[in-house]
Computed example of a mutant assay.
Amino acid sequence: MTTNAEDPATVIRAYPDGPILVRGDFELLDEDGRPVPHDRRTIALCRCGRSAIAPLCDGTHTLLNRRGDSS
């Protein structure tokens, strides 16, 4: 990815009991160093480990939190 002075800084924010949001100019790599495609400047990364679209969040954590299931 290329950057210039007009690009906003990358911001990473972890939400309690939720995903990690990444905003701005970034490159997401898998465990082998290959780029993970994304089509947005903001993505949510899964922290609960139960997402069907890992490493991206699919909202599964909200169901787990409602049921009180943290395992």
Rank of each mutant, 00 (worst) to 15 (best):
D25T: 07
L21A: 05
R13W: 00
T42H: 08
G49W: 03
T10E: 14
T62G: 12
R23Q: 11
Y15W: 01
S70D: 11
R34L: 06
V22K: 11
L28C: 04
Y15C: 12
L64D: 04
R13D: 02
V22E: 06
S71P: 00
D30C: 02
C48K: 09
V11D: 10
C46V: 05
E6F: 07
S51N: 08
R41G: 07
I20A: 05
C57L: 02
T10Q: 13
R41D: 07
P37M: 02
L56M: 15
N65Q: 12
L29I: 01
T60M: 07
R40K: 10
A5L: 09
I12D: 09
R23A: 02
V36A: 11
R40W: 00
D30W: 00
V22I: 05
P19M: 03
L21N: 00
N4I: 00
F26L: 13
L28P: 00
V11R: 12
I20D: 05
I20H: 15
D17F: 09
D58K: 06
G18H: 14
D17N: 13
A44E: 10
T42G: 06
A52R: 05
D39T: 13
N65C: 08
R67K: 11
N4Q: 12
R40Y: 04
S51I: 01
M1K: 05
A14F: 01
E27F: 00
I53K: 15
V36L: 06
R13A: 02
C46Q: 12
V36S: 07
I43S: 10
R23G: 00
T42N: 14
C48E: 06
N65L: 01
I43A: 13
A54E: 03
I20K: 10
L45V: 09
T2N: 09
R66E: 10
A9N: 15
R47I: 00
P55C: 04
L63M: 11
D30Q: 01
P19W: 03
D17V: 07
P55I: 01
D69T: 14
D32N: 09
R34M: 08
D30S: 01
D58E: 04
T3V: 05
L56K: 15
R13M: 04
D25F: 03
G59S: 11
P55Y: 02
A5N: 09
T3S: 15
V22Q: 07
I43Q: 15
A54V: 01
N4M: 11
G59H: 06
A9Q: 15
A5I: 10
A44F: 01
T10M: 12
A14M: 05
V11F: 03
I53C: 09
T62W: 11
G24L: 07
D32S: 09
F26V: 11
C48S: 03
T62E: 14
P55A: 03
L64V: 09
P55Q: 08
E31F: 03
D69W: 12
